[in-house]
Computed example of a mutant assay.
Amino acid sequence: MAIKYDTTTRNAMLDALNTRIGTSAKVRIYNGTRPANVGTAITSQTMLVELTGNATAFAAAASGGVLTANAISNGTAAATGTASWCRVFQSNGTTAIADADVATSGSDLNLNNTSIATGQTVSVTSFTITDGNG
């Protein structure tokens, strides 16, 4: 992308995203290949676990082009697989807002373990959304 934004604009865009996500966001973690975009239907990927964000899912304001999630409740895995990406939904669970990569470190959403087994407790260690167009 050739367009670059100043930090104030990047923060404003992330704050607008935060407003759209709203309270108690649902984060569904999947295996398989991440779809081309958030509007693409999930087909062969399996939802491994659904997690619920805090009543205020993300910090009140982005800083430095980064929006940081508040606490996300642990979840119990519904299926077995290797977590590779997630989809963030509004609290209604039907309005998809964003897709993100998943790993144990250095990713958008970091878990305690990406090898997930049915019945396992899944914990988020960090989740940030970064606008890299600075």
Rank of each mutant, 00 (worst) to 15 (best):
31 N>R: 00
32 G>Q: 02
34 R>E: 14
35 P>Y: 07
36 A>P: 04
36 A>M: 01
36 A>I: 14
37 N>M: 02
37 N>L: 02
40 T>F: 00
40 T>E: 02
41 A>Q: 11
42 I>E: 11
43 T>Y: 10
44 S>I: 11
44 S>G: 14
44 S>N: 13
45 Q>R: 06
46 T>Q: 05
46 T>V: 12
46 T>K: 05
47 M>V: 12
47 M>R: 14
48 L>Q: 12
48 L>F: 06
48 L>W: 10
53 G>C: 12
54 N>I: 13
55 A>R: 08
56 T>V: 11
57 A>R: 06
58 F>V: 10
59 A>C: 07
59 A>Y: 00
60 A>S: 15
61 A>T: 15
61 A>F: 05
64 G>Y: 14
65 G>Q: 05
65 G>F: 03
68 T>R: 11
68 T>M: 04
69 A>Y: 07
71 A>D: 13
71 A>K: 05
73 S>F: 03
73 S>A: 15
75 G>R: 02
75 G>T: 01
75 G>S: 09
75 G>Q: 09
76 T>I: 15
76 T>F: 00
79 A>K: 01
80 T>R: 01
81 G>M: 02
82 T>M: 10
83 A>Q: 03
84 S>P: 03
86 C>W: 00
86 C>G: 10
88 V>N: 03
90 Q>K: 13
90 Q>H: 04
90 Q>P: 06
91 S>L: 05
92 N>T: 14
93 G>P: 06
93 G>W: 07
96 A>S: 13
99 D>F: 02
100 A>F: 14
101 D>L: 05
101 D>W: 02
102 V>A: 00
102 V>F: 09
102 V>I: 11
103 A>L: 08
103 A>H: 06
107 S>A: 15
107 S>M: 08
108 D>L: 04
108 D>H: 06
109 L>F: 01
111 L>T: 11
112 N>K: 00
